[in-house]
Simulated scan of single mutants.
Amino acid sequence: MRTASCRCGQLKITCVGEPVRISVCHCLACQQRTGSAFSAQARWPDAQVTLDGEWKAFEAAGDSGARATFRFCPVCGSTVAFAGEGMPGMTAVPVGAFADPSFPAPTVSVYEDRRHPWTAVLGDDVERWD
């Protein structure tokens, strides 16, 4: 079991078992959402995820045109979970919300054609999508 939270700790998410996918995304929508050059997220089946605390939702389309719903803390604004049309039945949690440097590394890197040239996803075993 893994627990993640928003920055202020008001909103927590508990994930049972290991994630089915850990990925980084270089799309422009993820860059805007995170304020970084890419995002990192882990996904679990919806049935293995529990949110605890108050949250608000924001829905938007990503670079692919698929819509996603982001759940975030209304106090500190941290995104704690999101779900999208691209992977129905799955909940994604930003890896940073776990505040765990030993969290497993990503195995998938998407939208690499939008990757900032000064970034690199390390590892020969990373599946790369353009």
Score class of each variant (00 low, 15 high):
52 D>G: 04
51 L>E: 03
97 A>S: 14
41 Q>K: 07
25 C>G: 01
65 G>Y: 10
86 G>E: 11
52 D>Y: 07
88 P>S: 13
47 A>G: 08
48 Q>H: 13
51 L>H: 06
99 A>E: 09
86 G>V: 05
81 A>K: 00
85 E>F: 01
106 P>K: 01
54 E>Y: 06
98 F>N: 00
72 F>T: 04
21 R>E: 14
81 A>E: 04
80 V>T: 07
88 P>L: 09
41 Q>G: 15
78 S>H: 06
50 T>K: 15
107 T>I: 06
65 G>A: 07
113 D>L: 04
44 W>L: 01
104 P>H: 09
81 A>F: 03
31 Q>H: 13
69 T>M: 10
58 F>H: 13
23 S>A: 15
25 C>S: 14
68 A>L: 05
94 P>Y: 01
87 M>P: 02
75 V>R: 12
109 S>L: 05
88 P>R: 11
24 V>L: 10
91 T>L: 00
96 G>F: 05
95 V>F: 06
35 G>M: 14
66 A>N: 12
91 T>W: 03
58 F>C: 10
35 G>C: 09
39 S>N: 13
111 Y>E: 04
59 E>N: 06
47 A>F: 09
81 A>H: 00
44 W>P: 00
25 C>V: 13
100 D>E: 12
92 A>E: 00
111 Y>A: 02
88 P>M: 13
35 G>V: 08
64 S>I: 00
20 V>R: 13
114 R>L: 12
94 P>R: 00
90 M>Y: 13
82 F>D: 06
58 F>E: 08
25 C>F: 08
91 T>Y: 00
44 W>M: 04
57 A>F: 05
88 P>D: 12
89 G>I: 02
86 G>C: 05
44 W>T: 02
50 T>H: 09
53 G>N: 07
89 G>C: 08
87 M>Q: 12
75 V>Y: 07
32 Q>I: 15
72 F>M: 06
60 A>Y: 06
22 I>G: 15
24 V>A: 09
82 F>L: 10
104 P>W: 10
107 T>N: 06
33 R>A: 15
114 R>F: 10
30 C>H: 03
53 G>K: 10
54 E>R: 14
62 G>W: 09
87 M>V: 11
68 A>N: 09
78 S>P: 02
33 R>P: 05
33 R>G: 13
30 C>Q: 01
68 A>Q: 10
70 F>P: 04
115 R>K: 15
32 Q>P: 04
92 A>M: 03
101 P>Q: 09
106 P>M: 10
62 G>F: 06
33 R>Q: 15
52 D>I: 07
93 V>W: 00
45 P>V: 08
36 S>F: 11
50 T>A: 13
81 A>N: 02
92 A>F: 01
40 A>C: 14
80 V>H: 02
87 M>E: 12
103 F>A: 06
84 G>H: 05
111 Y>I: 01
115 R>W: 01
88 P>I: 11
86 G>S: 12
47 A>V: 09
40 A>K: 08
64 S>C: 03
87 M>N: 12
60 A>L: 10
36 S>W: 10
68 A>P: 01
